[in-house]
């Protein structure tokens, strides 16, 4: 028998099911950024319908694929209560190292990619050890690594693009089922990461450590190891993103990943991840990445003056966060 549940408000009025549904939806944390995203797409499409042209959509998705891969790692790390400012430089380092190994040293492409990702993981490990074991602030450690890794990229590449790369690299940027490889890699990583965060013990430990480290340790969670793992994951994903950009460009450019660090952190925070740790989701973080990309692209397509675009991006970002706070206070979630 179908039982229809109708909520009775203190005033005695019956809430309509649609209203209940709306309230339930608004309690979902990701709904705030999703609504902001829908509004942004609608506004930009109204201003210039070509904003929703396939080429623009694909370009935006391809761009967020690179930053999104980094965003997945950064989101997990921030949920664990830390953050990494070196991701953009590690992306460049991964790209340059892979490019040099395959072009100058003749390493097979898959092996070069594996070494580059392993290097990213190692950089993450160093960040993690200095932060978690030595006790240095992540801000200082990863800021230092930002400069060191970028500098190393320039040294290894001789200050210029590593070019040409072997022809086989193009397979890393080939289209599969009509979409560039990077988008599929990003989608796979995002789905796995979301499942890990929602369903696995590792995901629960990340939330526990980020939410309250002492309580997590009392509960038997080895917080240091969890944070180290998150740092390593972030480094590895950053290097992988760099390799995918390298494949798209056909050269190992030491400028890959320039300014990604703040863009990624801003995006995941807009997507509902708290910088204090313990709160947020991969889905929300990626919606944040998509939202900022949509706004950046939409401002260009709408013909907004170039010098005003950063102002607009910043304003929209703050507005989106503000709206989400209002939603959170009124409906929870």
């Amino acid at each position: 028998m179908l039982v229809r549940r109708v909520r009775v408000t203190p005033g005695g009025q019956h809430d309509a099911p649609a209203r209940q549904l709306l309230h339930a939806a608004l309690r979902v944390p990701e709904v705030g950024i999703l609504l902001a995203l829908v509004v942004a797409v609608a506004v930009f499409a109204l201003v210039n319908p070509s904003f929703v042209a396939w080429a623009n959509i694909e370009s935006n998705v391809r761009t967020i694929a690179f930053i999104g891969i980094v965003g997945v790692g950064q989101a997990m790390l921030i949920i664990a209560g830390e953050f990494d400012l070196s991701v953009g430089s590690v992306a460049a380092l991964g790209a340059v190292v892979a490019a040099v190994l395959m072009s100058d040293h003749g390493l097979p492409i898959p092996l070069a990619v594996v070494v580059a990702v392993a290097l990213g993981i190692t950089v993450g490990l160093v960040n993690g050890l200095l932060t978690v074991k030595v006790g240095l602030p992540a801000l200082i450690v990863t800021l230092g690594m930002l400069f060191a890794a970028r500098g190393l990229s320039y040294v290894i590449s001789g200050g210029t693009e590593v070019y040409p790369l072997p022809d086989g690299v193009k397979t890393l940027s080939d289209r599969v089922l009509g979409l560039p490889m990077a988008i599929w890699v990003f989608a796979a990583i995002a789905i796995v990461a979301d499942l890990v965060m929602r369903r696995s013990g590792f995901g629960r430990r990340l939330y526990a450590v980020g939410g309250n480290r002492e309580a997590a340790q009392l509960a038997g969670i080895r917080a240091d190891r969890i944070k180290l793992a998150a740092f390593m994951l972030t480094g590895g994903l950053a290097a992988l993103a760099g390799v995918l950009v390298m494949a798209q460009l056909g050269s190992g450019d030491p400028q890959i990943g320039m300014n990604w660090e703040l863009a990624v952190i801003a995006a995941v925070v807009v997507g509902g991840i708290s910088l204090r740790g313990g709160v947020g989701s991969i889905a929300g973080a990626l919606l944040g990445v998509l939202f900022l990309q949509v706004v950046s692209s939409g401002l260009v397509v709408s013909g907004v003056e170039a010098t005003l675009q950063p102002v607009a991006v910043g304003t929209v970002m703050i507005a989106a966060l503000g709206l989400d706070q209002v939603r959170h206070r009124r409906y929870g979630g």
Binding site: N48, S50, F51, A53, A55, N56, S59, N60, R62, T63, F66, G88, V245, Q248, L249, D253, Q255, I256, G257, M258, N259, W260, Q293, S296, S297, G298, V300, V301, S302, G303
Partner: peptide, 17 residues
């Protein structure tokens, strides 16, 4: 800007405009 992937993305947006 100087980040290659972001630069291409922005140029595509310019073309769409």
């Amino acid at each position: 800007g100087f980040e290659p992937a972001a630069a291409i993305s922005k140029a595509v947006s310019v073309l769409q405009s």
